[in-house]
Design a protein around this nucleic acid. Structure first.
Lengths: 241, 241
DNA sequence: TCCTTGCGTCAATCCTGTTGACATAAGGCG
DNA sequence: CGCCTTATGTCAACAGGATTGACGCAAGGA
């Protein structure tokens, strides 16, 4: 098997084009490719061309496309959560968490769409769970409620973000077609068969947008409504979190 | 262009293997293929083999792979919503809609992964949108609000259902491992570094469950809280706006 | 200086979707 | 009943995808 992927490299040999390959360089180039030419531009052949090396050279660094995508996803998670420190307001804290996760996913949709199905169990994820549950505990929820509600919160955020990312990862043609559908197909419906849709015809263009923020706001509203301590401007029953 | 996809077929001609092709048969075979051998098993060539016809024959029925995918997604929606007639209670109606969609996705876990974020533009989807928006209009929401909130509702339902389906589609080994993680990794954390997680240690087993119902309930709670007319059993000031 | 070996390159294999040309039979119509 | 149109299944070909085994260059230790 020619695919070995060692952990450290000592002997570096430039490609014919004079580039020194490395795992970091490959991941960065892949992200640049996706950013510049859309998610569908990422293929082993194109990546090889962009790097100035033979496509098969990448198999010295990654076992296959999956491995490469996971490496990219790993980097995205790290970047998204970097430097996040929640403040006193638990609602604001959860909101920023949600937006950060989504921004990280949307920045690299194809990788996110692929990786959102998996659970990492790594340090970044554990820290995020700690942060989120701490926020809900600080809101006054009992441990059982805080745990269950955190699960609901993060699942909503992750699944919505994954959905947005998956949509972004579609080829531009299909994305535009899906978007256009709300102004084409849905505008020409028979009013007798579809009275409700006819009544909101003017508003259907919003169906092409993302509902992420609204979903998060509705969820936070419901959480705030369920929180046992409605007023807590004194956020310090000893260990503040 | 050989791809024309007429709406009705009069002349049916059996394939060399003696099969009478039809859009329904193709979609059903595709779902069976995906269910048996995973989403990556769906290719035009394999589908042709499974149907006993030349791969290119499928282009008489679908404009391309994307069109086929949309047809599959729409079939799942149609099966899920078949026979659903909402009653008076709009909250109950949305709840049942959510549960139906989820059940439909869980019935085809591997297809759900790529079908959940598409706009099918087909009849079953249109009918579902009509039903949902009618429910929100009956709750007293203005057209713009009803449209936006329906989008939020259905996106939450779809993305959560897709996530559940993706988890179901994992091999049992991996599923069990994810479940077990909450009782392994997360039980052995350093209390000083992870005080919140340590405090809810007893409850973490619930993290392996689905949060679908809770997410829907929270969303419905928030919607009920925003509904303009709390009590409106008289729903007919004719042209509601 | 030489020998090992990491690793970039090449060529080949087997997939994929898609399409233009072709053939054949279904079914309307005389 | 038979012909003719044409819908539709088949075939062959093309472009581009992932992946891999063989090859050979050159980096670096000895």
């Amino acid at each position: 098997m020619p695919t070995r992927v060692p952990q450290e490299r000592r002997r570096r040999r430039p490609t014919r084009a004079g580039v020194l390959l490395s795992e970091d360089l490959i991941v960065e180039t892949a992200l640049r490719l996706i950013g510049e030419h859309g998610p569908e531009a990422l293929s082993v052949r194109r990546l090889g061309t962009a790097l100035g090396c033979d496509p098969s050279a990448l198999y010295r660094y990654f076992h296959g496309t999956d491995d490469l995508v996971l490496a990219i996803a790993d980097r995205i998670i790290g970047d998204a959560m970097a430097g996040f420190v929640p403040g006193d307001d638990w609602v604001a804290g959860l909101r920023e968490m949600a937006l950060r996760v989504r921004a990280g996913y949307l920045a690299h949709p194809r990788a996110a769409a692929f990786a959102s199905y998996r659970v990492t169990r790594r340090e970044n994820e554990i820290r995020a769970v700690e942060t989120g549950i701490a926020l809900l505990l600080s809101a006054g929820f009992a441990p059982a409620d805080a745990t269950r509600l955190y699960l609901t919160f993060i699942d909503t955020v992750l699944s919505h973000a994954a959905m947005d990312a998956a949509f972004q990862a579609l080829p531009r043609q299909q994305r535009d077609a899906d978007h256009q559908a709300w102004q084409d197909v849905y505008q020409r419906l028979d009013p007798a068969s579809y009275p409700a849709l006819t009544g909101v015809r003017q508003e259907l263009h919003t169906m092409g947008n993302s509902s992420f923020e609204e979903a998060v706001e509705l969820l936070l509203e419901a959480l705030a409504g369920r929180a046992p301590a409605r007023r807590a401007p004194e956020p310090d029953p000893h260990s503040s979190n």
